[in-house]
Design a protein around this nucleic acid. Sequence first.
DNA 1: TTTCATGCAAAATGTTTGCACACGA
DNA 2: TCGTGTGCAAACATTTTGCATGAAA
Lengths: 160, 160
Amino acid sequence: MPDNLSHNTVEVALTPWERFAEYLHIRNKRITQQRRVLLDLVFEAHEHFDADDLVVRLGPTDAGKKIGRATIYRTLNELVEAGLLRRMVISGRSVYEHDYGYPQHDHLHCTACNRLIEFRNAELVALRDTVAMKHSFRATGHRFIILGLCRACQARYSGP
Amino acid sequence: MPDNLSHNTVEVALTPWERFAEYLHIRNKRITQQRRVLLDLVFEAHEHFDADDLVVRLGPTDAGKKIGRATIYRTLNELVEAGLLRRMVISGRSVYEHDYGYPQHDHLHCTACNRLIEFRNAELVALRDTVAMKHSFRATGHRFIILGLCRACQARYSGP
DNA sequence: TTTCATGCAAAATGTTTGCACACGA
DNA sequence: TCGTGTGCAAACATTTTGCATGAAA
């Protein structure tokens, strides 16, 4: 396994689009306008977002091109299944981020301002696998979130 | 070899009851029948449970001793705030376990049978604090769940 | 021309809240 | 007594689903 931890992307053979097309083709699913628009929107930038963000970003502008909430949810599930997006649950709502072509990482979650800060730590995966092996468990993934206060919020909460 | 986590305890000065009473007293909250019944029920055994489990364990109609769902949710929130219970979210629902008088640990979650297996690892907290410090983040806690297949489910899914 | 996908609204889920009454301190 | 707590039902927020229509292949 190559150590790409010090770079911002991971080399991948296919573009997200090629990969999604492949995923759809294998399951006899169709390449529709909606899936096209959503995938482009989602891979426009490296951000954390939720279903509602997409609704907002689609909403007022494209008057004729309205995509229903249900389709957004359905497509997000497909993108997760296709390995393009990673889902995590932050205070009760699903939050998504790029997974394909993006290095493995985890998050610090500021419980005051709700910001998510990414970090990478190679030891963590090693630790995970050690623990899993000790319990005859076959690890397929993990969720690790460090909760606390970011620097800005520490300052804010200890007076001016 | 499993390390019998469920029979270990941490020495604490107060019983859960004393601690809850103290918590309530400080906030001018009252020791009611319902809170009494719920705390006893919750500390009856070391298990993972959710709100619905409590509803079921309280029975259909305890001769007029019915405790409403709302009260159960309200009390669980108090028990978490009081530091007696720890809450984690497993596939969209809140799951609780003892926190007070119970050693720090994390979980392996079998995504096939939904079982939660506890493990302890001292390195993890060290790692957490190292990462937090590197980001000027004040860590107050973390959530770490290793996802995968437990031994039984690995066997089940690779044929007999 | 046959599936499959979409939009809409309704349903499902898990939890919280408003309110009138009940009860603990 | 007085302020909290409770049960109930309704509200909530997010996500899923049933169904008739519309669009890929």
